Amino acid sequence: MTIHAGKLTDPAVRAFVSAVNAHDREAFLKLLTPDATMADDGSDRDLTEWIDREIFSSHGHLEVDRESDGGRAFLARYSNDTWGEMRTRWSFVVEDDGRISRFETGQA
């Protein structure tokens, strides 16, 4: 059963999923700390290059199936124009100011 983005527990994660699904790059970047980092399948990636390729230029979309870790981790069906749909896991480090300093994703 899919969890609607507006029902996700953590406000930063909720805004992250909403920005991805709205294809709103500006809103997405405002959620991140200036020095934010990310990893895909266990390897650190260039954040700007990755989000442009995997999310914004390829119409990425998240359907969250289950959240954990107080809303700072979830399992989802992720789809984009490049890879189609796959089961993915996501986890987030959210700072005291409510911005995301790191996220990690990969196939579940």
Rank of each mutant, 00 (worst) to 15 (best):
90 W>Q: 04
23 H>N: 15
42 G>N: 07
81 D>R: 09
7 K>S: 13
101 S>A: 13
32 L>S: 02
13 V>M: 08
51 I>A: 00
84 G>H: 10
69 D>F: 04
15 A>K: 03
13 V>A: 06
58 S>L: 04
103 F>Y: 15
61 H>V: 02
74 F>H: 01
32 L>N: 02
16 F>V: 09
34 P>Y: 09
88 T>N: 11
74 F>K: 00
42 G>A: 11
47 L>K: 08
7 K>A: 13
22 A>V: 01
46 D>N: 14
92 F>V: 02
95 E>D: 12
38 M>L: 15
35 D>A: 11
3 I>K: 03
66 R>I: 12
75 L>F: 14
62 L>W: 00
76 A>N: 01
100 I>A: 06
77 R>F: 12
2 T>Q: 09
45 R>F: 09
96 D>Q: 12
87 R>G: 08
81 D>G: 08
61 H>F: 06
12 A>W: 05
13 V>I: 13
16 F>Q: 03
68 S>C: 02
36 A>E: 12
11 P>H: 08
14 R>H: 07
78 Y>N: 08
10 D>L: 04
74 F>S: 00
93 V>C: 01
15 A>M: 07
56 F>Y: 07
80 N>F: 03
74 F>I: 00
102 R>T: 04
9 T>W: 02
25 R>Q: 11
11 P>A: 10
70 G>W: 11
35 D>P: 05
73 A>W: 04
11 P>K: 11
30 K>D: 07
47 L>Y: 13
62 L>G: 00
98 G>L: 11
58 S>Q: 09
74 F>W: 02
50 W>V: 04
71 G>T: 10
10 D>F: 02
101 S>K: 12
59 H>D: 14
56 F>N: 01
37 T>K: 14
95 E>N: 10
98 G>Q: 13
44 D>F: 09
28 F>M: 07
10 D>H: 15
43 S>G: 01
77 R>C: 13
84 G>I: 10
51 I>K: 00
78 Y>V: 05
64 V>I: 04
35 D>E: 15
32 L>Y: 03
4 H>V: 11
73 A>F: 05
27 A>H: 04
35 D>Y: 08
58 S>T: 12
77 R>V: 10
11 P>Q: 08
68 S>L: 05
98 G>H: 06
86 M>P: 00
103 F>C: 06
81 D>S: 13
71 G>I: 07
89 R>K: 09
80 N>Q: 07
105 T>L: 10
96 D>C: 01
57 S>R: 11
9 T>H: 11
34 P>S: 01
46 D>Q: 10
45 R>G: 01
